[in-house]
Structures are given as C-alpha cells and as structure tokens.
Design a protein around this nucleic acid. Structure first.
Length: 835
RNA sequence: GCCGGGGUGGCGGAACGGUAGACGCGGCGGACUUAAAAUCCGCUUCCCGCGAGGGAGUGUGGGUUCGAUUCCCACCCUCGGUACCA
C-alpha cells in the first residue's frame, strides 16, 4: 500500500491484512512491551545528574484475581501522569508490587481446597501479565510482594522496634469480632457496625490482642499543613480522629461505694447545673458495686441483654433509649444535689469515660430518656426570650445561664470557661481532650499474614523473638479445617518452640499482623528494594521519600492512609527516617461506573482483556482517560471507544504521510497558523496533564491532529514545520498512548525511545492570532460577530461593532448608556430607549 | 442529621465573570464502493421562521453585575462518606 497525501489506513484490528503499514495494535504493543523491558528504560537510578527525583506512587493492588477495568482506570491514569513527569525532565520512580497477604486468599483456599500461597502467587502471575499488557512504565526491578519472607520479615522487625519503644502492646479487652471471618478487626475496618470486607455484623469479644499505639499521635495526625491532599480526605481523617474538647468531672458515690467517683466527660460543662441523672455504660466497672440489692436481678438481666446485642443494635438512632435504675445516687459537686445513677445501653464503654451526665434540657438523647423515665428536665441555658416554660425539645445552641448559681446571667459561651475554672480550682475535675481514634488493633486470628514475632514462656512471660531469628516463617502446607480456626494454632511445628531467654519449651503467638501493616511502609521498600541487612537504606529513602505524587482510591482515607502516616511518625521517633509524612501530595481517582453502578466481578462485570484484544491497550488507555475528569470518575459505555480508535488511526495516518508533497519553508499564513496551533496545543496539554485532566488533554490533541491533517491536505506548509508538528503530536501522545507513539517515533526516523524525550515547549506569544472574532452584544445579547485585527483598540472595536448591520438595527431608536470592550473577547453596547 | 462531590443537548462531557454546549459518541445528509464495512466531508440544544433573523435555555427561586454555568443567599435532587461521640 502506498501512502499518498490522501492515503488512509484502516485501523481495525482483525489482523487479516498483512500490510505492514496498517495500524495493528496487537503487533506493535507486544513488540514495544518486550523492548522496553529488555532495555530497562523505566528503571530508576537513585541519582541522575541534573534531574530532580520524583516518586510517583500508586496504591498497589491486592491480587485477588484478574486486574479489572477499575484497576485499568486507576493504573493507566497514574502511569500517564508518571510518564508525563518523566518527560517533564524529572527522574521518576514509578514502582509496582502486590499487597498479597489477607483474607481473600485464605477464604478461597478454604472454599476451593487450594493453598493460599499457590492461589496468591498464581494471581500475581496473571496480574503481572495484565500490567505488562497495559504498557505501564513500572520499574519492575523494584517489584515487591508482601507475602515474601524477605518483605514480611521487616514487618516483624518493625513490630519489635515498636514493642521496645512502647508503641506496640498487648491488652485484654473487648475487640471487634467478625463471626464470619473468624477474626478481630481494627475500628477502622468496621463500617456501620459490619465487617468492612464481608459485611457481617461485628460483635464484641473479650480477647488478649496486640495494638499499635496510634493514639499517641492523635494530635500530630490532625496536622495537615504540609500536605497537598484533597479536602475530603483530610476531613474524613479529622472526623475519624474525632478530637473533642471538654471537661471530665467526678460525681461522688462514696455513699454506695466508698472512695469511688463516677468520672464523666462532657463538651457542655455550661449545662452542668442541669444534671438530673447520671448514666453508666452496661460494661462500666462501677455498675456492679453501685447496684442496690433490690435492683440487682433487673440490672444483671439488663447488662446481660446489652452484652448480647451488637453495637449497631445498641447505637441505632431509631431505637428507643432504654435504661434501668441502680438504686444508687451520686452527688453533683457544683450544687451538691443528689441525682440517680442509671445504666443505659446508649452509653458506650469505649468512648470518653463510659459514663455521661444526663442534662435532658440540653441534650437530645437525654431529653428523650428523661421524658420516658419521668426524670426532671431543668433548663440552665435559656433560649433567647425564654418565658420560663417547659421545653418542647432539648435546647442545644448557646443561651444565657440560669439556675446556675453565681453564673446566672452569663452568656453560656462564657459560662463554659468560668464553670470549668471553678471545677478545676476545687479539684472536682479538669479540662480534657478526648478522641474518637482508638489504638490500632493489629492481631488477626488468621493464617495468611505476617506471624507476630512473640513467644510465650511459662516462666519468662511474653518474650520477643530475637532479631537474628527473624523472619518467623509462616509454615507451608497447613491444613484448613471446617471450624474456621487458624491452622497456626494447630500446627505443632510452628506453635512449639523454646524460650529465647531461658531455653525451656514455649509457645509462639499464633495471631498474624493486620495486612495494613504491610502497606504502611511499602513506599520505603520501593525506594530501597535490596538493602541487605536493613529494612531499607537511609540514603536511598532520603533520595525518594516523601512521595511527591500518591494516587489511590478515597476508600482508604481512614485505614491505609492513616496507618501509613502513623508508621512514618513512629519510624521517625524510633530513628529510622527523618521526615514526618509519607505522601506530600495525594490524588484520588474517581470511581469507574457502568450503567449507573459500580463495576463488580459478579453483578456488573467489565473485563478489560476482550477490549484490549479488540481495540488495543492504547485505545483502552485513552478511552478510560477521555471519559471525563479523571479525579471524578467515569461512566463506561461500549460505543464511545470508537472515537478514540478513530483518533489513533488518524494519528497513525498523519505521522506517516508523505512530506515530499509539501513546500519549502516560508512565512506563509498557513505556516503561521500551524505554528500557532502547535503552541496552543502544548500550552493546553502541559497544563491539563499536570492537573490530571486527561480528557481535555486528549481533546486538545484531537484538534491538533485534525489541524495537521487539514494543513497537509492543503499542502501550503513546509516539510520542516510539518515534521516538527508531527513530532510534537507524538511527544504529547506518548504518556497517554505509549505504544503507538513509540512505533511512530521510530517510523518517522528517530532513534532512541520517545519516552526518554522531553515534552515540547511553548511560547505564549506565538499562541495569538492576527485577526480575532469579537462578539458584539447589545444590552448583553449577542447580535453579531465581527472579524477585526487582534491589536484593535477600544475605540476601534466599538466603532467596528456599531458598523454591523444587525447591531445597527438593534441600536435604532435607543440612546447610548455606555460601551464595554473586553480585550479580544467582545463589545457590549449598553443602551436605553431613546426619549 | 452532619461533612464532601455533582446536577449543562439524545449520551459522556467543555467553558480565566465575557459568543454556553469544545472534544467525542450517537443520529441525519453526502463522497468513495457493484454493495457493505472501514474511511473522509457537512449538519446536529430546543421552539418559531423559506430565509434574514427572533425567542427560550446550564436543577428551582431570589440577589450582585453592562454581562452569571461561574460569585452571594435560600431551597430541591443525586452520588460518596459519616454519626446516640456525651
């Protein structure tokens, strides 16, 4: 086939045509993927003369099966950005790996009788192949797999460092338990009272469990000044940490339990004179001591019932508040009043002090509760204009202190501080800050995870595994039994060991670490993949971290992202790193949906492989990025992909047209027009790519492609500027469609990879035109469009506007009020009826 | 309830306070073809009009402005997140 000036090439990929000039994605994509890998062009050196390092990280996948379209959406966008930054002249590190520990592997193993390790590593092989088909620019030399002993060894190592420094501890107490997954869960992994993974209602179970002391960093984790993160994620973290300032105040109960006080926490100490009862959580340690003989049976029954209920049931807003009297009374230290002590299941043992002061007049829950049990409702913060009558509902906003002894008449906003001061001065309590954030529960009663490196010895107690004995290897070929209990508890060769201190027989800890421990520091290992005897090399980490661009889904806002921040701070305080934050810039890709619903393997499937086979990876990449603003997600439809395919076909065509048909260089209008289009395109593409606006980048490139084709058809431009234009098009296309760009770069006579080239530059002064179109408005309505010289002045523009026939018609019979000229845009003639 | 997105043609979506609908899909018409596919060219917000042109129009109602998709106020819908947090 000969390519003529009108030459067209077909871009359908049926492969039946052997024409070497045909765009056949499957051929060129395989070819380049292999070559890039052989040449190692995406492997990042730690230091390159004259280049600034840029760590472009994307959240690594869990290898639970095929890479699906949602992954493509996320990873092609992240890859395009990394490629763009590389072409901006940065020394870019864009690694990939697998977060391969976790429940799905184990569940699959139980369901299908497969070994979790085999299942996982088979999935990883598939995922690796699919990533290669995507044409992503990963530095595979740094790949990491978290279930490899050389990785999880360091989870164990860090656990021991944290243990030594008081940042890891074991505690016996109520923990979230998922009955289906047969394991405890961190608070962050409980959504609406249900297991984040399987949706099963979570119950409380008392167990000895390991924790990381994330709450020590609660205050520091609220600092986001250094972080260029989406406001949404920062807000979610703030809410999760849940800082509230208030006052703890003790209510004396020595009449019933000598020397005891009920500590309560409140954010509304201004209402303390309105306390008419105090409620304890059913689990509160004082419940038993305070309950009077007459109430004993009833209270015990109530507490037992509450224990059987789930947190969702107990905290449902629809549910009626219930409570029961203990028969005991406590003393409000401010006014000496004796108020009843109740037990109520709407009070949570895990928040604040596990006891609340009841102020029905100024708290919605207390109001309902008081109405139900006939308790006094005493107004102490009067609403504006309050007549002293009964409230119809709790008054929450500020007001004026009443019934509050010497504080009467003060605005409650001032009463708040004054009352707190009095309480502190008298030693009744103190101003306190509480957090919703709990310590990170890291124990999992499951097999497929990092073994916790602890040994229990009858004589020496809890003994950490010595560092030189790491890793504690996860045993192979374990047996899974129907009871769902972790095989580690039954594997004698694992379980039985000797005490490192005294040498006597001892038992290993059988719990494994939460998989979120793996992802809390993986970026450090990417920066330093083979450091020898250390978890990572400090200089290498310093070269790359903090991560300059981190990409991932918003669903990790309070799990991974919070844990990772904690890990950075804990590693800083244990002397491993010298920075505070792991990821200085975060971008969330949006969600890819189809038919208005999230894509899901079962209910709404959308496998990428058939699309790649039919259209090619470049087409799919670009299509996903063209769907809409990438950070807001996309709406998949099968039909639209043709538009991208046609565009790439046109790129293929335009790059290979015969330049001999074009003329010599000269200052022609067509030449200037082509130059202008070039600079406008580069300006748009550079701006948009940097802001993850791949969709508008692509539309700019589509327009530029059309312009190049049009100019070639006319044949009035020089071969040199034509060639430069094609180069520019290919360079801008390279991050988005890397294979076709590379193929055409080679075919147009370049040596070396296009992906190691620099982005084209632009000169803003060359983006201007000689003639411009001005809109002419009369009273804000467009009445004509006029062509004028670009350098026209205001008077000239207004005169030209008035010369328009249609404009003149609308001006007839009016008097001029004023005329506005917006430079290069429009003229607005403001008039009113004459006379 | 509270906190964040977002409501624009038949569809996905563009628009520094300045010609609303770029780019693409789909549709319609045409070229090429024996024919079809592919490709290329043109048209395509709605209403009135042969046309020139006119009117309406960015979820709703107000406001600021010469001019508002854009800024302000009130509200509706929708998608995420989150909550007896004392």
């Amino acid at each position: 086939m000969t390519i003529t000036s009108k030459g067209r090439t077909s871009s359908d990929g049926d492969g039946s045509n052997q024409d070497p000039n045909r765009y056949t994605p499957s051929d060129i994509e395989k070819k380049w993927q292999a070559k890039w890998e052989t040449d190692g062009i995406y492997e990042a050196a730690d230091h390159v003369e004259g280049k600034e390092n840029f760590f472009a990280l994307v959240m690594f996948p869990y290898p639970s099966g095929d890479i699906h379209m949602g992954h493509w959406f996320q990873y092609t966008g992240a890859d395009a950005y990394a490629r763009f930054k590389r072409m901006q002249g940065y020394n870019v590190l864009h690694p990939q790996g697998f977060d391969s520990f976790g429940l799905p592997a184990e569940n699959a193993a139980i369901e299908r009788g497969e070994d979790p390790r085999e299942w996982t590593y088979a999935n990883i092989d598939t995922a690796r192949r699919q990533f290669r088909e995507m044409g992503a620019s990963y530095d595979w030399s740094r790949e990491l797999v978290t279930s490899d002993p050389e990785y999880y060894k360091w989870n164990q190592y860090f656990f021991l460092q944290f243990y030594k420094n008081g940042l890891a501890y074991r505690k016996h107490g109520p923990a979230n338990w998922c009955p289906k997954d047969q394991t405890t869960l961190a608070n962050e992994q409980v959504r609406d009272g249900a297991c984040e993974r399987c949706g099963t209602t979570v119950i409380k179970r008392a167990l000895p469990q390991w924790y990381f002391a994330i709450t020590k960093y609660a205050e520091e984790l609220l600092e986001f000044d250094q972080l260029d993160w989406p406001e949404k994620i920062k807000t979610m973290q703030r809410n999760w940490i849940g800082r509230s300032t208030g006052t703890t105040i003790g209510f004396d109960v020595s009449e019933f339990a000598p020397g005891e006080k009920i500590e309560t926490f409140t954010t509304r100490i201004d209402t303390v004179y309105g306390v008419t009862f105090v409620v304890l959580a059913p689990e509160h340690p004082l419940v038993e001591k305070l309950t009077q003989p007459a109430q004993k049976a009833a209270v015990e029954a109530y507490v037992e019932k509450a224990a059987r209920e789930t947190e969702i049931e107990r905290t449902s807003t629809e549910r009626e508040k219930t409570g029961i009297e203990t028969g005991a009374y406590c003393i409000n230290p401010l006014n000496g009043e004796r108020v009843p002590v109740l037990v109520g299941d709407y009070v949570l043992a895990t928040y604040g002090t596990g006891a609340v002061m009841g102020v029905p007049a100024h708290d919605t829950r207390d109001f309902v509760f008081a109405k139900k049990y006939g308790l006094e409702i005493r107004v102490v913060v009067a609403p504006p204009g309050w007549d002293g009558g009964e409230l119809q509902e709790a008054w929450i906003p500020p007001g004026t202190q009443v019934n509050s002894s010497e504080f009467d008449g003060l605005p409650s906003t001032e009463g708040m501080g004054a009352i707190a001061e009095k309480i502190e001065a008298n030693g009744w309590g103190e101003r306190t800050i509480t957090y919703h954030l709990r310590d990170w529960l890291i124990s999992r009663q499951r097999y497929w995870g990092t073994p916790i490196p602890i040994i229990y010895c009858d004589d020496c107690g809890t003994v950490p595994v010595p560092e030189q004995d790491l890793p504690v290897l996860l045993p192979d070929r374990v047996k899974f039994e129907a009871d769902g209990v972790s095989p580690l508890t039954k594997d004698k060769s694992f379980l039985n060991t000797t005490c490192p201190d005294c040498g006597k027989a001892a038992k290993r800890e059988t719990d494994t670490l939460d998989t979120f421990v793996c992802s809390a520091w993986y970026h450090l290992r990417f920066a330093s993949p083979s450091p020898g005897e250390d978890p990572f090399d400090t200089d290498q980490v310093r070269a790359w971290v903090p991560v300059r661009s981190y990409i991932g889904g918003a669903e990790h806002a309070v799990m991974h992202l919070l844990y990772s921040r904690f890990f950075s701070k804990a590693l800083r305080d244990t002397g491993f790193v010298d920075f505070d934050e792991p990821y200085t810039k975060l971008t969330n890709q949006g969600m890819l949906i189809k038919d208005g619903r999230k894509i899901s393997k079962r209910s709404n499937p959308l496998p990428p492989d058939p699309v790649v086979a039919m259209h090619g990876a470049d087409t799919l990449r670009c299509y996903l990025m063209f769907l809409g603003p990438w950070d807001q997600g996309g709406d998949w439809s099968d039909s639209g992909i043709n538009g991208i395919k046609r565009w790439l076909g046109r790129v293929w065509d335009v790059a290979q047209r015969d330049e001999k048909l074009l003329g010599p260089e000269g200052e022609t209008a067509a030449e200037r027009e082509l130059t202008r289009a070039a600079h406008v395109t580069t300006m748009r593409v550079l701006t948009d790519m940097d802001a993850f606006k791949f969709n508008t980048s692509i539309s700019a490139l589509m327009e530029y492609t059309t312009e190049l084709l049009r100019q070639h058809d006319k044949g009035n431009v020089s071969a040199a500027s034509w060639r430069a234009g094609v180069d520019r098009l290919l360079l801008h296309t390279a991050p988005l469609a890397p294979h076709i760009a590379e193929e055409l770069w080679e075919r147009t006579g370049h040596s070396g990879s296009i992906h190691l080239e620099r982005n084209p530059e632009f000169d803003e002064s060359l983006t201007a035109t000689d003639m411009i179109t001005l809109a002419v408005q009369v009273n804000g309505k467009v009445r004509d469009q006029i062509e004028v010289a670009a350098d026209i002045d205001q008077a000239g523009a207004i005169a030209a506007a008035k010369a328009s026939e249609n404009v003149a018609r609308h001006l007839a019979g009016t008097a001029e009020v004023k005329s506005i000229y917006v430079l290069g845009r429009l003229v607005n003639l403001v008039v009113r009826p004459a006379g």
